[in-house]
Every structure is written in structure tokens, then in C-alpha cells.
């Protein structure tokens, strides 16, 4: 059904679906370390950013196709994720302290990118549109729809594979009680590192899509805290640590973000109202559906049956 949808949708609605799929993808990537393993990274924009910059710089300066660059970007992001994870997990940073560490790294990336002239500094990078698919550019915007859908499906397949294996069981034990997990033989450091590396790799791959869908990269947006919030909030609203949480969360929030942006920001002077809506929604979720929409829907269906 999702495959046939672009045939009947207006180009604006295709854009909305691209955002739904893409943010579901980023949310699913975050879900592996933040949801399943319960390690709250609030700096995942850092991985989008380094992935985006790596692919864009390689494409602009060396002519490397983003189809390869996306994996280079993912690898660079995974190295950064591994480094942040090592610092955090090796020294036992938990809860708020881990959150602060991840935010600090994203901010450092933002400041560094702002000051590196050879990657465009504060102005950022602009990609000229050529419509060449080899350069990840498409005349028909429906191509982005299928790529974003493919990314979302691929990340969900990765999460499903993790869930079924020992990896997934261990991650959920770590989230529940790390000390108890250690006591029954779970190498918690190693598995948290795996989760962080897989998550940052996938997020870095998403960076390529981000850069080549928007044709531009600015340090303050791609490394900014608002993007990290966008990544986290969908799986939390949908149900962190559940397979379909990030997708359900994105189907709820991405259209909402688009609507509020469209109606309020277009009128002028109302920019940022969607952030207030997010805030209110987050409060509602925390108060009434603390485990997110998916576990709540599951319970609802069970009591109906």
C-alpha cells in the first residue's frame, strides 16, 4: 500500500510522507541504543551531522557518489559514537550524566563545524541540483519517498533482528537493571558499545539523505539540539524499546510538526509554535502513556479481545 501511495498523492503530501519515513528511520536508529538499551543519548544530531558532512564534502570535493559516501558517513559517525560510548560507559556515566555527555559532543561538533572554513564554516555547504541519480539527486520527488521508505524498513529490519537475538535480550536486561544483568553474565560494557555503534552508524547513513534531500547543510541546524529532540521524541511518544514505536511516533508527530509549521510559521511571527506543541504532547505522554503509544495500544487491543 505504501508502495503505491505516491501515485495518488499530491507532491506536498509526498513531502510529508518523506518526513514521516525519514524521522521514523532516525528514531528507529536511536531506539537501538536509547530505547532497547535505555542509554539516553540526547546528541544524536552529531551523527546526522558528521554523516551528512562526510558524504557532502566527499561528493563536492572528490566527486564521490553519495551512494558510497553514505557508508563512509555512517562509518565516521560510528567511530564518533564508539568514542562517546567508550567515554560514557567506561566511566560508568548513567542517566543525566550520559545525557549531558552526548549533548556536549553534539555541541562541540556544531562549534567545530562553524569554525572550519574548508567545510563552509557557519555558512555551511550548498549542493547544486543536477538531477543526477548517481549524485543522489532526482527530478521526480517520489524517488526520495521510496528511498526514505527503504531506509525506514531497513532500520526496522535491523531492530527486529536485534530483538530476536541474544543481543536484544541483553539490551533489555541492561535497560532494566545493569548490575543485575552483569551478575547473570551479561557483558554490559560490550553490549552497550555494540548498541551505540550500530545506532550511530545508521544515524550517520541518514545524514546523507538529510544533506542531499535539502541540498544544503548548516552547522547550527544539522548539529543543533532541536534536531536531537526531533530524533528522540518520536520513539518516546510511540514507545521506546518497541519495534513499531518510532514508526507510530513519527506518523503522529511528523504531520503534526508539518501542520503547525505550515499554519503558524506561514502566518509570520509564529515560528517555533510546533515546539510548544511538542512540549505539551511530551507532558501528556509522560503523564498518561509513560511507555508510549504502542504498549498502550497493545493493552487496549488485548482488553477488547
Amino acid at each position: 500500500m505504501l508502495l503505491a501511495l505516491p501515485m495518488v498523492l499530491s507532491s506536498y503530501l509526498v513531502t510529508v510522507f518523506v518526513l514521516i519515513f525519514f524521522y521514523a528511520y532516525l528514531g528507529q536508529a536511536w531506539n537501538i541504543v536509547g530505547g532497547y538499551a535505555g542509554q539516553l543519548s540526547a546528541g544524536h544530531a552529531a551523527f546526522v551531522g558528521v554523516g551528512a558532512y562526510a558524504a557532502a564534502v566527499l561528493s563536492l570535493s572528490a566527486g564521490l557518489t553519495p551512494w558510497v559516501g553514505m557508508f563512509v558517513g555512517g562509518t565516521v559517525a560510528a567511530v564518533l559514537g564508539g568514542f562517546i560510548g567508550f567515554l560514557g560507559f567506561r566511566f560508568g556515566l548513567r542517566g543525566f550524566y550520559f545525557v549531558l555527555l552526548t549533548v556536549a559532543f553534539a555541541e562541540m561538533c556544531r562549534i567545530v563545524a562553524n569554525n572550519l572554513e574548508w567545510i563552509g564554516g557557519a555558512v555551511g555547504l550548498y549542493i547544486t541540483f543536477t538531477g543526477n541519480p548517481w549524485q543522489f539527486q532526482f527530478q521526480d520527488s517520489r524517488a526520495y519517498y521510496y528511498i526514505a521508505l527503504g531506509l525506514m524498513v531497513a532500520a526496522t529490519a535491523v531492530a527486529a533482528a536485534i530483538e530476536r537475538r541474544r543481543f536484544g535480550v541483553y539490551l533489555s536486561a541492561i535497560r532494566e537493571d545493569e548490575g543485575a544483568a552483569e551478575a547473570v553474565g551479561v557483558p554490559t560494557f560490550r553490549y552497550k558499545m555494540f548498541a551505540m555503534i550500530v545506532s550511530s552508524f545508521l544515524t550517520g547513513v541518514g545524514g546523507t539523505f538529510y544533506a542531499f534531500y535539502l541540498f544544503s547543510l548548516q552547522p547550527n541546524t544539522v548539529f543543533g539540539i532541536p534536531l536531537s529532540v526531533e530524533i528522540i521524541i518520536r520513539p518516546i511518544v510511540g514507545g521506546a524499546g518497541t519495534l513499531f514505536g518510532p514508526i507510530v511516533g513519527s506518523f503522529i508527530l511528523s504531520p503534526l510538526a508539518e501542520l503547525t509549521r505550515f499554519y503558524f510559521a506561514a502566518g509570520g511571527g509564529w515560528a517555533g509554535v510546533h515546539l510548544i506543541v511538542y512540549g505539551v504532547l511530551l507532558v501528556v505522554v509522560v503523564l498518561f502513556f509513560p511507555q508510549g503509544a504502542v504498549p498502550w495500544l497493545r493493552r487496549l487491543l488485548r482488553t477488547q479481545a
Partner: peptide, 8 residues
């Protein structure tokens, strides 16, 4: 002090 994984 028992430490089950409460949600599992």
C-alpha cells in the same frame, strides 16, 4: 534486595 528485571 532482589533485583528482577521488572518489565520483563
Amino acid at each position: 534486595i532482589v533485583r528482577p528485571f521488572p518489565h520483563l
